[in-house]
Design a protein around this nucleic acid. Structure first.
Lengths: 348, 348
DNA sequence: GGTTAGCACTCCCACCTTGGGAGCGCTAGT
DNA sequence: ACTAGCGCTCCCAAGGTGGGAGTGCTAACC
């Protein structure tokens, strides 16, 4: 769909790009005069006006009112983003900020993610967010059932450093030896992926002794939620305060809804997964292109990050539709790349 | 200090209370007429005016400008709060919301806290926040050093369900048997409190074999940060979106700073600890009474929660200085109480 | 045909003015 | 000690206004 309307004629394209860039810069509707002067097209404002009218007709621009300048529609931003050259766009200062941020070695992927999200929020002045690795393909390093008296804690540790826990009622009839035996059997699952281990556990629960049955089911359930993210998923956010910035385009009411949505992790996970492009591509979602962002006049720029060849998570930024897409895309791309290298390294 | 200025004369007190309540309700500066009519003091507005002037002189009220009504100063709110009767103030709907919220049994204290914080934010329409238990007095249930290949994970599990982890470089010369032996020795620490276990570990590091030295130090360090909260503390927030509410008193710029501060967990922890009253009392911090809240025109209502007789954490709300203190205090008190019961129960 | 200059027109917005009202302080009288 | 009354201050919402930005159109030009 990025290839749907590439043909506007080179000049219309240039005019549209000029409008987007100027509007993003200034926040004011852009008039024909401004473009005639700054875009270096060598034509008069009257000609630009004709082009603007045509672009509006085509749905790329709109008018707040008759005698105001133009602002881009979501479709206009979309064209702009699709017409951007693939690489680059990173300012020197940003490049340096990224380099120095990752200079310090951190071994815990979770910590790395937190740092990366904050880095992104500083680079872009928007809010950074990340979806941590889904555990499905991660090998299990340790599985434990810990006797805590009236309750039991199930603990799962993954190769990439994730730790999932779950506390539950102590099963009837469980005695200390139940736990010891269960742990012995769980030790045998080491090295399997979460998905495999979960499957084995369901089997073990069915075949094993009755007093372990419930315990094993709970361990399986713990692994399942670790894979789904479920309602215990921990998205990572950073620089959310940026969204409240004075200069930002949101009305108070929209701002409130925006924060509410961000707090609602489940919805954000859904959005991120809807939005993430298949493959390793950077994805840009502009306003109405997704119901949630449309509701919030927001855009999301996100990219998956990998360990080796496997995609293990997503990182990106949320900002107003009137976003500096060039900078945001470059920053997200660079951080995701760096993050992939790091994650790959952490996994050996 | 709550007893510093209890004597304003009964009428001045009544007038001040009326101003606070009316202002909290309406958000508009309150005039003498309004009070004369609504406060039921049986005196004319002229008399009220005299009282208002006196209260302003005393620093309890202020004037946006000459011909406007009065609004309370932080000191005014303080007097108001201190003059409130100790109990009650909970509306029936709130009482029911609390009861039904805790109807569902949850075993993980962390989950309980998240729920409680969200409950508080719904009850008060402000932002809820909580400081989870500090680990010092919590018994250690399990300590592990997990061989993750190029790195090592230290894992500590506490009796109340906390899990702390830490990933670090694999010490030089560590072999599988190093970990096995270390874990054996760590198993001996079970049942000690975090504080005790940390002390023992430092000793063990000094006395034990060289190849375990570094490992033990790292375990000790993990326990230390678990106790301090350090920079890895996980405060719990909920309903932060409430603060962006249309009707709220904050300017955009202040709102931004507020969100920034909330993101800065370290600072919030400091504030909470500065603010928490010794003993089990509910504490109310109003605007300028603390540098951070003063900067943000914010107030904090917080109360410790206990397990048995030991204070293990803090829970409360943050809102504008123009806060409905009665409702906030009642909600926080009730939730903290319920939470204490639950925590006590969870610890047997 | 595309481009341009020019111009009338629209509409907003920032500015000012203005009247009314809310609320105060003060004083004098009860 | 309280209150009625009054003059004063200051805000604020409601018009009114001018200017400016920007448009759309037309007619001329290359």
């Amino acid at each position: 769909m990025a290839e749907q309307q590439p043909q506007l004629g080179p000049r219309k394209g240039a005019v549209l790009r000029a409008v987007v860039e100027e509007y993003v810069r200034s926040g004011e509707p852009v008039g024909s005069e401004t473009i005639a002067e700054h875009a270096g097209l060598g034509v008069s404002s009257a000609t630009i006006r004709n082009e603007l009218a045509a672009l509006e007709e085509l749905g790329y621009l709109k008018h707040p009112h008759t005698s105001a300048g133009r602002i881009p529609t979501d479709t206009g931003y979309r064209f702009y983003v699709d017409s951007l050259p693939a690489g680059g766009g990173l300012k020197d200062a940003q490049r340096r900020a990224i380099a120095s941020h990752y200079a310090e070695a951190i071994l815990d992927l979770e910590e790395v993610l937190k740092g990366s999200v904050q880095l992104l929020s500083r680079l872009t002045r928007y809010a950074g967010l990340a979806v941590p690795p889904n555990a499905s393909e991660e090998p299990v390093v340790r599985l434990e059932v810990i006797d805590m008296g009236p309750s039991v804690m199930v603990l799962a540790v993954g190769q990439h450093g994730r730790v999932d826990k779950r506390v539950l009622d102590r099963p009837d009839g469980a005695v200390p030896s139940t736990f010891a035996r269960a742990e012995d059997r769980l030790a045998g699952l080491r090295g399997l992926t979460y998905a495999q281990a979960q499957a084995r556990l369901l089997q073990m629960a069915a075949e094993g002794p009755a007093d372990e049955h419930e315990l094993m089911l709970h361990v399986a359930e713990t692994l399942r939620t670790a894979q789904q993210g479920d309602r215990h998923a921990h998205m990572v956010f950073g620089g959310v305060a940026n969204l409240a910035d004075e200069a930002q385009a949101w009305r108070r009411e929209t701002l409130r809804r925006l924060f509410e949505t961000l707090e609602h992790e489940q919805e954000m996970l859904q959005v991120l997964s809807d939005v993430t492009a298949p493959g390793n591509a950077l994805s840009v979602t502009i306003g109405g292109e997704h119901p949630t962002t449309g509701d919030l006049d927001a855009s999301i720029v996100a990219a998956p990050f990998r360990s080796g060849e496997t995609t293990i998570g997503t990182i990106g930024v949320v900002g107003p539709t009137r976003m500096d897409y060039v900078s945001a895309m470059a920053s997200v791309r660079a951080v995701a790349k760096r993050l992939s290298e790091l994650a790959t390294e952490l996994d050996q």
